[in-house]
Simulated scan of single mutants.
Amino acid sequence: MGYCIHLGILCSLVLVFCTGFCSAAESSSALIYIQGSGSAITNGSNGMIIMVKDVVPYFHITDGVESKLVPVESLTDISYPAQAVVKLFNAENETNSIIQVLNLSLSDENKVLTLNVNPLEYYEGEMLKSLVNGQELTLDEINGEYNRADIYLEAVWEAPSNALNCNPCFCCDFGGSGECGDICTCCTPT
Rank of each mutant, 00 (worst) to 15 (best):
L137W: 04
L139P: 04
L128M: 03
E136N: 05
L137G: 09
G134V: 02
S130E: 09
E136A: 03
L120T: 12
L139D: 03
Y146H: 04
T138H: 14
N147V: 07
E145N: 04
L137D: 06
Y123Q: 08
I142R: 01
E145Q: 05
E126F: 14
L120K: 12
A149L: 01
A155L: 06
I151W: 00
I142N: 00
G144A: 03
V156M: 09
I151G: 01
E145S: 04
N143Q: 07
E145C: 02
L128I: 07
Q135K: 15
K129G: 08
L128N: 03
I142C: 00
N147K: 08
G144I: 01
N143L: 11
V132Y: 06
L128S: 05
Y123C: 09
T138L: 07
V156E: 11
Y122D: 15
N133W: 07
D140Y: 05
M127W: 08
D140S: 07
E124F: 13
E126Y: 14
Y123E: 12
N133M: 14
Y122C: 14
N133L: 10
D140G: 01
E124Q: 14
D150L: 10
Y152I: 00
L139R: 10
V132K: 08
N147E: 14
N147A: 15
G144S: 04
E141C: 04
R148F: 05
L137I: 10
E136Q: 03
I151F: 00
L131M: 14
G144F: 03
N143G: 03
V156L: 12
K129D: 12
L139Y: 03
W157P: 01
L137Y: 09
A149T: 06
G134C: 03
L153A: 06
E141R: 05
M127S: 13
D150Q: 10
N147M: 12
S130H: 08
A149G: 00
M127R: 13
L128Q: 02
E145R: 01
E145W: 05
K129E: 13
Y146S: 05
Y122M: 14
L128F: 02
Y122Q: 15
Y123P: 05
E126I: 15
G134Y: 02
D150E: 08
V156H: 09
E136F: 06
A149M: 02
L153P: 06
A149W: 00
Q135A: 09
A149I: 03
I151N: 00
G125C: 08
K129I: 07
N147P: 11
M127T: 15
Y123S: 10
M127E: 15
N143A: 07
D140T: 00
E136R: 02
I142S: 03
N133H: 10
E141I: 04
L139I: 09
V132F: 06
Q135H: 15
D150N: 11
E126S: 15
E121T: 13
R148E: 10
